[in-house]
Design a protein around this nucleic acid. Structure first.
Lengths: 235, 235
DNA sequence: TTATGTGAAGATCTTCACAGCG
DNA sequence: CGCTGTGAAGATCTTCACATAA
C-alpha cells in the first residue's frame, strides 16, 4: 500500500499502471479515442475486473455505458506515475548491459533523461555512449550533486553493488533500479526495484521441469491404464 | 501454485528460489558450509519465516538446532529449478539489448546455453556476437528445430514481438522471456516472463511522486501547527 | 441497454508463534 | 537449548456479481 496524496494505492496496482499506460499510448497512436475496460485489460494482459478495480484506487475516470477516453485516462495515469516531473538518471557500470541501457530509447517516452554515466574501469572512463562521456565512479557523489541525479540505475558486477548503492543513498538518492544479482541492504525508505535476468530464466526452467514431470506422470498413468484397462473408468 | 511432481509450490515461492540459490552460491564461494534461516534470509532480502515456509514446500532440508548445509541445500534448489537439465536458448532481436544479453555471462552459472541468435536486419545478420553468427529470423522455425532450442529470449521491438512469439510457440517452445514492451497473447500453457525496464522506472517514479506528496503534506502540517500551536497536542 | 465502479467473497501470500526434533 | 518446520492468524490481492449511472 503506497500513500499518494490522500489515497492509498496497493503496490500490486502500482506495478500494473505501466502496463495500462503502455496500452493506452498504443491505442492513442492508432487513433483510437475511446476504449473499454475489457479492451484495455486484454491489451494489458490482465482481467477487466482487475483493471477497473485498479483504476478505482486512483479515482473515477470512465463513463458508464461508454468506456474510457484514451487521451484523458492516459494523461491521468501519467500524472499519477509522476511522469510530469523530470527524472534525471545516472547509470553506474557501463559494461555490456549498462551500455545497452544508456542507448535504450524507451526513456524518451517522457519523464526520464539519462544525465550521467559512471564506471570504475579506466579503459571505459572517457569514452562516450549515447552522447554522454563516461566519468569515473570515484566522483559519484559530485556527479550526483552537480547533475541533480534523482534516480540511479546500477549495472555493476554483484560484489561492488552494495558499496556503490550505499554511496548513492548517502548522496540523497532514494530510488534505485538494480541489475546486480545481489539483495541490496539499504534503509527502509529507499525504494529498490531489481531486475534479474538469470533469475527469470531459472523461473522458466522451473516451469519447464514441472511440465516435464507432469508429462512423465501422464504417460506413466497412460501405461498403467493400458496395463489394467479396468482401473479408474473414464468419467 | 505450480505442480512439481507430487507437490504444489506457490508461484511466489518459485519466484524467490533464485534468490536463495544465489545467496547459497555466494556463501559456498566464501567457504561457508553451514547457514541458518535467518542468515540466508537476510542475504536473500526476505524474512526468515518466509524462507523456512518456502523451503517447506519443497521438503525438509535443515537440521533443527543447527541450520542448513549450504552445499546440499544449494544442490536441492538447483535440482528443483531444473538446472540439471540443459536449457538451450535462442535470442531474437540483436539490437543493443539483445547484444548485451548474448554477451551476458550470468547464464554460464550452469544450466543455460545460448545456441542461436536471430535478427531481421540484413546489416546484423551474418555478424557475430558471443562467438555465434546471427541468422535471419525468417529461418526461425528451422533454427529452433535444428539447434533444439527450448527457451527463447525476445528482445525485438514491440510491434513485431507478438508475431515472433506466435511463431516461436508454433515451433514447440513453451517458455519465453520477453523484453518487448507489449502484453503477449499466447496459449495458456505457454509461460511468459516479462522484463520491462521502462515500467520499472515508472514504478520508481510513482514512489518518488508519493514521497514528494508526503513531504509536501508534512510541511503543510508543520505550517498549520506553527500557525495554531494548540492544534493536536503531541503524544 | 451497456459498461463502469465497488462491496463482498474467495484465493493467495505473509507473518506469527510455538511444537518438535536434534 | 536452538533452530527448523508448520498450523493458524492476519494481510493482501483477485475475482465475482450487481447496483449505479449515462
Amino acid at each position: 500500500m503506497i500513500e499518494l496524496g490522500e489515497v492509498a494505492v496497493p503496490a500490486a496496482t502500482v506495478a500494473r499502471l505501466p502496463y495500462y499506460l503502455r496500452a493506452l499510448r498504443d491505442l492513442a497512436s492508432r487513433g483510437v479515442t475511446t476504449t473499454s475496460s475489457s479492451e484495455l485489460a486484454e491489451r494489458s494482459g490482465v482481467g477487466s475486473a482487475q483493471l477497473r478495480k485498479d483504476l478505482s484506487y486512483l479515482g473515477s475516470f470512465g463513463t458508464r455505458g461508454v468506456g474510457y477516453d484514451v487521451e484523458s485516462l492516459s494523461a491521468y495515469i501519467s500524472a499519477a506515475l509522476g511522469l510530469e516531473s523530470e527524472h534525471r538518471l545516472a547509470i553506474v557500470g557501463i559494461g555490456n548491459l549498462g551500455h545497452a541501457l544508456a542507448n535504450y530509447s524507451g526513456y524518451a517516452a517522457r519523464g526520464f533523461q539519462v544525465v550521467a554515466l559512471l564506471d570504475a574501469d579506466p579503459q571505459v572512463v572517457g569514452t562516450r555512449a549515447a552522447g554522454i562521456e563516461v566519468e569515473h565512479v570515484d566522483g559519484l557523489e559530485q556527479v550526483i550533486a552537480a547533475k541533480k541525479v534523482s534516480m540511479v540505475v546500477l549495472a555493476t558486477p554483484g560484489p561492488v553493488a552494495q558499496e556503490i548503492a550505499e554511496r548513492v543513498v548517502d548522496s540523497g538518492v532514494r530510488e534505485i533500479l538494480s541489475f546486480a544479482p545481489v539483495a541490496l541492504q539499504l534503509p527502509d525508505d529507499v525504494v529498490v526495484r531489481s531486475v534479474d535476468v538469470a533469475g527469470e530464466l531459472q523461473i522458466l526452467a522451473f516451469h519447464a521441469a514441472a511440465r516435464a514431470a507432469a508429462s512423465r506422470a501422464e504417460s506413466a498413468e497412460a501405461e498403467r491404464l493400458a496395463a489394467s484397462p479396468n482401473g479408474t473408468p473414464a468419467r
